[in-house]
């Protein structure tokens, strides 16, 4: 089986100059990505998650041939990215949330026309693809407007269209929803979900916004300090890290605190004791069993079960690894910003 993305033992170091005295500087080697291995199969949608400076963007740059790895092996669409940059560019689409590949001084439509020429897309295929995106992403109202006049949400929809025109096998999105309002986020997510479902486009998505992952990516790779902390389906990770569920019951009358039934770890109640929360381990009991037990003790009006939020799962992963998520590692872009501040 050939993978869309096949990464093995991937590492990337940067030398960072640090001031050690008034005039003295010394080079420090920082490992932005350390021994990262994973594969992505065709048609998979994978979320690549980590805090600022965890090595996400550095990984993306190595996958797209912008950076060469210090060591390890990368193969994307069967190509070695940094050696076959141009060939690979025809097979992948990239969206950077923080920079634009459109021409700011031209109408969106003209930007897309230039890309048609660059990727040598046949006119008919271009039309079909564009029409589809215009319809699904509602580009109609601003297709003729210069890119510099577009709102961020409109521009991102344009960027996604631009990345998809040449029918890439793999779509890489680096923080695509950053800064978008709720409606724009929802629209973009809806479109991407459809893309994965209908076209079987492979999706690799880095994000801060865990909702992106929850809605789009069945699989999650969590990275911190340049190392992979976890790789798996969201549900599996949830069970692994914080298996507890919470059963909320609303009682008809105020009463005593409910007993800790088998499998229940804690019981919490509000001041009237009408609403009570039971944390339980689903491996030792089930929600149905618990509800039945509660109903025997007191009349119940309403119940609900909540799973831990994805944020809690990720936090649990960091806690387990003893890592505190914070910006530490330095990627190329933050390196230059640091230089600017001097």
């Amino acid at each position: 089986m050939t993978y869309m993305v096949d990464v093995e033992g991937l590492s990337r170091e940067f030398s960072v100059w640090a001031r050690t005295g008034r005039f003295r500087r010394s080079a420090k080697v920082v490992e932005a990505v350390a021994d990262v291995s994973f594969t992505v199969a065709r048609g998979e949608a994978v979320g690549y998650v980590g805090p600022n400076g965890s090595g996400k963007s550095t990984t993306i740059k190595m996958l797209t041939g912008i950076l060469a790895p210090s060591s390890g092996r990368v193969s994307v669409c069967g190509l070695e990215p940094s050696q076959h940059r141009k060939q690979l560019a025809r097979r992948i689409g990239i969206v950077f949330g923080q920079r634009s590949q459109l021409w700011w001084d031209l109408p969106l439509r003209e930007s897309l026309e230039i890309l048609r020429a660059i990727y040598r897309i046949p006119q008919a295929r271009f039309r079909a693809r564009l029409d589809e995106c215009v319809e699904l992403l509602d580009l109609d109202s601003f297709l003729e407007r210069p890119v510099r006049q577009l709102s961020l949400g409109q521009r991102m929809r344009g960027e996604v269209t631009a990345a998809l025109l040449h029918d890439p096998d793999l779509l890489v999105l680096d923080e695509p929803t950053i800064g978008l309002d709720l409606e724009s986020k929802a629209k973009l997510r809806g479109f991407l979900a459809e893309l994965v479902a209908r076209r079987a486009t492979t999706l690799l998505l880095t994000t801060h916004d865990l909702q992106d992952i929850e809605l789009l990516c069945p699989r999650l790779i969590v990275i911190d300090h340049g190392r992979i902390l976890a790789d798996g389906a969201l549900d599996t990770l949830r069970d692994e890290v914080s298996p507890e569920r919470i059963l909320r019951v609303d009682l008809k009358q105020p009463g005593a605190l409910l007993p800790t039934f088998h499998g229940v770890t804690t019981v919490q109640a509000d001041e009237h004791r009408t609403r009570q929360r039971l944390s339980f381990d689903p491996r030792r009991t089930t929600a149905a069993e618990l509800i039945a037990q509660v109903a025997q003790v007191a009349p119940v009006i309403d119940v609900s079960v909540t799973e831990p939020a994805i944020e809690d799962v990720i936090r649990g992963l960091y806690a387990r690894s003893g890592a505190v998520p914070a910006a530490r590692h330095i990627s190329r872009s933050s390196e230059t910003t640091a230089g600017e501040e001097e």
Binding site: F96, Q98, Q101, I118, T336
Partner: peptide, 15 residues
């Protein structure tokens, strides 16, 4: 271009 990241955009095109 290098400082603002536009250079990466040039690098990702097949030209």
């Amino acid at each position: 271009y290098i400082r603002t990241g536009t250079f990466d955009i040039l690098m990702m095109r097949p030209l």
